[in-house]
Simulated scan of single mutants.
Amino acid sequence: MPFTYEPVGATREHLTACPPGFHPLHVRTRIGEGERVFRRAAEALLTWEMHRAMGVGIDATADRAAPDVDVTVSLAGLVKAPCRIVWTAEEPRRAGWAYGTLEGHPECGEEAFVVDRTGDGTVWLTVAAFSRPAKWYARAAGPAGRGFQHVYARRCGSVLRKLCAGEEEQ
């Protein structure tokens, strides 16, 4: 099944990239500090644990994010959103992935989830996306739909912070 947008993979190098005709999203949340926090956050992100801890349904063709893995995200059992992983990163100070929308998703675009550890040891989660409505109900939601995306991205950060609690190096 082909992606429903171009340019596929645009979030890989530029988390703030937003092609014309799409709405941008960029939310950065401090998770904690230290190598242990980074490793814990990366693992929770790459294995869908963060999403599942949020109560989001994840039906994936693999236990870990990897290119070409198909993922269907479901919210409250009502909305099913088919996606495919377009890129992943597992580096010493950066880990994450992005998925792109497939036919049947209420939106059209790409969303990235990246954990990084800065030079001072601070661990951050960045949720970045570009999207536009694809279904009638997403168009009808208008600005409220974009507001929901921001709330969702902020919740990702708060849930990941809780999953990493207790990992701070003393």
Rank of each mutant, 00 (worst) to 15 (best):
E43R: 15
L46W: 07
D63N: 03
G34H: 14
G77V: 14
A128P: 02
V71F: 07
C164R: 01
E49K: 15
W87P: 04
H14N: 15
Q149M: 13
G57C: 12
G34I: 12
V69D: 00
A112D: 06
A112L: 07
E49A: 15
E35M: 07
V115H: 05
V151G: 05
H23L: 12
A112G: 02
F113V: 06
R146D: 06
D120Y: 09
I31L: 13
E103Y: 00
G21N: 13
G147T: 14
D59W: 04
G147C: 03
A95F: 05
R36N: 07
R155F: 07
A10D: 06
C18T: 15
A95C: 06
H51Y: 13
R28S: 13
K135D: 08
F148Q: 15
R64T: 12
G109R: 08
D63K: 01
G9S: 02
A129G: 12
P19W: 12
L102C: 00
V115Y: 11
R84A: 06
Y152P: 01
V127K: 00
A10S: 11
P7R: 11
G147Y: 10
V8N: 09
G32W: 09
H26F: 12
V86L: 13
C108S: 15
R117Q: 15
F130H: 14
W87S: 08
E111A: 02
V86G: 11
A138C: 09
T29A: 10
R12P: 00
D120H: 12
G55V: 10
D120V: 10
F113L: 08
M50P: 04
P92C: 04
A153G: 09
W87R: 05
G9V: 02
L102W: 00
C18I: 13
G119C: 03
